[in-house]
Design a protein around this nucleic acid. Sequence first.
DNA 1: CCGCACATTCCATTCACCGGAACGGGGGAC
DNA 2: GTCCCCCGTTCCGGTGAATGGAATGTGCGG
Lengths: 252, 252
Amino acid sequence: MGEGARSVTAKVLAMLEAFTPATPDLSLSELARRAGVSLPTAHRRAAELVAWGALERGADGRYRIGLRLWEVAALAPRGLGLRDVAMPFLEDLYEVTHENVQLAVREGLELVFVERIAGRHAVPVLTRVGGRFALHATGVGLVLLAHAPAEVQEQALAAPLHAYTPKTITDPDRLRELLAAVRRNGYAVSDGQVTLDALSVAAPIRGADGAVVAAVSLVVRADTAEPIALAPLVQAAARGISRMLAPRLDGR
Amino acid sequence: MGEGARSVTAKVLAMLEAFTPATPDLSLSELARRAGVSLPTAHRRAAELVAWGALERGADGRYRIGLRLWEVAALAPRGLGLRDVAMPFLEDLYEVTHENVQLAVREGLELVFVERIAGRHAVPVLTRVGGRFALHATGVGLVLLAHAPAEVQEQALAAPLHAYTPKTITDPDRLRELLAAVRRNGYAVSDGQVTLDALSVAAPIRGADGAVVAAVSLVVRADTAEPIALAPLVQAAARGISRMLAPRLDGR
DNA sequence: CCGCACATTCCATTCACCGGAACGGGGGAC
DNA sequence: GTCCCCCGTTCCGGTGAATGGAATGTGCGG
C-alpha cells in the first residue's frame, strides 16, 4: 500500500495537472484533493507557484493557470515553434476554403492539436487547441499513426479502439490496410468517423530528416461534393510547411 | 551569507525559466548553471520533468520544453482562453486588410503577445507569440497602459523608458497626455515608435465587468495612406471580442 | 594513447517538507 | 441574534527526500 512518498517535483506537477479543460479554475481544497496532497502542502506549493506566475488567483480567490506558464510553454518546439512556421500556410488554406484548418502532432499514443483555425461559418468541430484525441479516427490521427514507428502502431492498434460513430473503424486489420493506403496516397480521409456530419482530409508534414513530425487537415461537412479535390490543397500546405521546418524540430 | 536555500519548487521553476527564446534547448550543464543548481540536482529534477513531459530530450540529448507543459498552459484563461474567443475576429481583420494582426494582454509593467497573425506579405514585425514588450511604445502597449490602474501607470512612467527609435516618446508628461488622448479617442496610434518603418493602430478589449483586459492592433507600413481609417476596423474587432468574453476572464 | 568535458550514479548528512492540530473568518440555517 | 460548518491560513516537531562532493561512465579531440 501504500503511497511511497512522492517527490516534491511530482507534487508540483500534479498540482498543475489538476487543472483540466472542464475545470480551469479550482479552490484550494479542490486543488489539494485533485493533486492528492494535504491542504497545508497545497497551500504552500500554490503560494510559491502564484509568486512565480505559474498560477494566478482570481478576485474570487480561486486558482487558475497563470500567464507566465504560458510564456514558458510557448518555447516548446513542437508547440508554438511549429505553429509559428505553419501559421502562414494554415492562413492560406483557410482563406481559400473557409473551412476548419487543424494542425496536430503525435504525443505517445494520442495526438495533440497545436493549432486550429475555425471559420465562424464552417462546421463546428469539438476539438480544442492543446487538447488530446485518439489516433485512429481523425484525418490527422490516421496520418500521424500511418507514419509512426511500427512499435507505436502496434501499441495503438492493440489498445481498445473507441467507436465514436458507427463509421469509426475499430478493426485492427482494416485499420492496418487503411494506414497502408494512407502511406501510399500521401493523404488520409476520415469520413464520419469522428462525428457523422464531418469529414476531414489530412496530409503529413515532414521534418528536416524526412520523418513525419505533424499533420494538417481540412474539416468540412460530410456532404461536401468531391472532398477528394481538397487533398491537393492540403498536401500543398503540408509540403510548404515541411520546406520551412528548421532542422531542430526533429524532436524525440 | 548568501543564498538562503531555495525551495524545491523554486528550483524547478528556475529550471523552466532557464529556457529563453534565444536558447530554446540546453545541455544539462547549461541548464544547471542557468538555474543556479548543482549538476546532480539538475539531473534528478530534469529526469522527473522529462518523465512527466514538462521537458523533452532531443536525439542530441539536449533538453527542451515539452509538449505536455504546453497542453497545461493552454488552459491559461488569459492565454489560449482569450485567444480562442478572439481568433475569428482576428481572422476577419486579417482577411480584410492582409496586415499584421496582434493580440496582447498586460502582465505587470510589460505586455505579452497572446496571438499574432503575420501575413507573408505584410511588414515584418519582430514580436513573437508568448514574448514580452514594454508598454510605452507599441499601439497595444499604449492602450493597455492607458486603461491600467493609476498605480501601474505611475510605476511604468517612473521606470526608465527605452527609446527604440528617435520617435519613441520617453517623456512621462508627454506620455500622460498621450494616454489621456487614447482614453478619449478609444484607440491608440503608434507611428514609428518601435521601428521607423512600422505603424500600429490599437483598440481596447473589455471583459464582462467593463475593465480593459486586452488589446488588438493592426501593424502596417509607416507610409500607409490614411492609417487612421484603420481605427474603425480595429475598434469593431475589439468590440466584437469584448461581446464574446465570458464573465470569468476578469482575471486578477 | 591520453585528457578533457559532460553525463550519470553513489552515499552519508541534513534541513526543507510534511501533516495533524489549532486558529481565523465568512456565510447559511434556524 | 447564535450556532455551525466549511474553507483558508498558520504553527510546530519529527522524518525522509533532497542535497553536493566524489567516484564512475562515456564520447570526443588531440
